[in-house]
């Protein structure tokens, strides 16, 4: 045990390590602060957090859980992209291959699918929790707005992904969904045409949804998630419920 620790310490003191993790070795609060500040991802967080914000009742960890599902979705989504062709009818054949041939392909697809559902659910839950906690109040107004846009993005991501298996379920779900767009006054038909790349759900729509699902929407979502997190810090950290003290 001790040797592992010393070896690890040795590793941490090498030049290479130091160039990557600038905070260096040490176990003071200063080092811990630096670990956060000098890491582009952790930098989004503040260095210290009120411990009441970490209590389960404060947030139910809904934001963190949502982010977890998002991570799972990115990871599984990238793996699924290795097996998927956005073309008709190959898309459906790829589902069959995932199911029957690809090692753990079913698991991968299940994970992606269920994570997507879970994320939609968690985003809604997060939103309601934030509302009931009053955590959108100034100075967090704009972060709420970003949150609403993230909700819409999540729905769009899920909806565009819904079509990709190209089975009856997805085809008709998307058909029903896209028919709603037709109801927009004046330009409903044009919106639907733009959305599907044609007048009906076909190979064009599949390609369009694929690009949206795999490139445009995830990048936008990542960007907005970044802003969302950054804003948490800038707006005074995680919201902590008022103490019922006189």
């Amino acid at each position: 045990m001790a040797t592992i620790k010393t070896e690890f310490e040795k590793l941490r003191s090498t030049d290479v390590w130091r160039t990557i993790f600038r905070s260096g070795s040490g176990s003071s609060n200063l080092h811990r602060s630096q670990a956060v500040q000098q890491n582009i991802f952790l930098h989004l967080f503040s260095v210290k957090i009120r411990s009441r914000a970490l209590e389960f009742s404060a947030t139910w960890y809904l934001g963190a859980l949502t982010l977890s599902t998002f991570f799972v979705l990115i990871a599984t989504g990238i793996l699924l992209m290795f097996y998927y062709h956005p073309s008709v009818p190959q898309a459906y054949a790829d589902m069959k291959d995932l199911q029957f041939v690809v090692a753990s392909g079913v698991f991968l697809r299940n994970l992606h699918r269920w994570s997507a559902h879970a994320m939609v659910f968690l985003v809604f839950a997060h939103m309601f929790k934030v509302f009931y906690r009053g955590a959108y109040r100034p100075p967090r107004q704009f972060n709420w707005v970003i949150g609403v846009f993230l909700l819409l993005l999540t729905l769009l991501l899920s909806y565009t992904g819904y079509l990709l298996p190209w089975d009856q379920l997805s085809f008709w779900a998307v058909t029903v969904g896209s028919n709603i767009a037709k109801a927009v006054p004046l330009m409903g038909k044009q919106i639907r045409f733009l959305m599907l790349g044609g007048n009906e759900v076909n190979a064009n729509a599949l390609l369009r949804f694929y690009v949206l699902h795999c490139v445009i929407l995830p990048l936008t979502a990542i960007l907005l998630v970044g802003v969302h997190f950054w804003r948490i810090r800038k707006d005074g950290g995680l919201h902590v419920p008022e103490k019922k003290t006189p």
């Binding site: 069959k96 291959d97 199911q99 029957f100 041939v101």
Partner: peptide, 8 residues
């Protein structure tokens, strides 16, 4: 045909 389980 593509299936690899008895049931499917």
């Amino acid at each position: 045909g593509p299936a690899t389980s008895v049931k499917e």
